[in-house]
Amino acid sequence: MRLTVSHNTTYRFDPPMRGVVQSLRLTPARFDGQRTLDWRVNVPGAVMGAAFRDSAGDWVETASILGPVAEVTVEVTGEVETSDLSGVLRGHRERVPPGTYLRATPATHADTVVQELAGAALSGQAGTDPLARAHAMAAAVAEAVVYEPGLTEHGTTAAEALALGRGVCQDHAQVLIAAARHAGLPARYVCGYLHATDEGGPHEASHAWAEIWIEGLGWVGFDAANACCPDARYLRLGSGRDAADAAPIRGLARGRGEEAMEVAVAVAAAGQ
């Protein structure tokens, strides 16, 4: 499938800031399921630099904007050829040992409720392989957290979202990560895009899901929000230990201005 992406993020500062520095992880991952045909990341007014491939295999670059900054827009456009690998991240080069993804973060801490969810999901799974356990875990999370936007926010932890029983893709991913790690499966947070076609389903063009490490198979994606594994409708950017760590844009503004953010994302299948 050929996916075209247009993704603009605008930050407005009032009063203007003295300067802004951003770390951008906005370039499609390189693996067998994706071939980038065209991709541009543009931040008008910024000095770009300090670009490198990070330990997790993601392309990172840095944007610096000297003040006064009243507004800054990160513009992403591009086209990527995707294929369905049933969620398996085949051919992705990275250096972080999977075992490090067993470490919890504050946002993915497994409280007793998360632990109970993991335990319930795995009851009757004794003796099954890790892939079956991961599927069982993802299904349990899909059932335990109903998709409903507007109730959770960026800082919502896995434990809070599960207690609420409702949330968005970030919450599904973080609950699944917390539960998987508790069960001894390394897990991480993935950011990307989704070409949503189902009527009535979660329409989050800017999307997130989880990856779980399956010995012998490697990293496998699980999208508990849509109760499926990533296929050709998914475009993978980068990963992290939780939502904040994996954020496609991490920025810091110097000054005392109030920040407002506006995002416009469109993902289309080319030729449709």
């Binding site: 951003q22 630099g49 300090a50 840095t62 991490r250």
Partner: peptide
């Protein structure tokens, strides 16, 4: 703060990216 603790007031934003590159 762009790589580690986002609330750090003691660090330099973007330092790790320059280091890694």
């Amino acid at each position: 703060p762009l790589c580690f603790r986002p609330d750090s007031m003691l660090g330099v934003a973007g330092l790790m990216n320059v280091y890694r590159s």
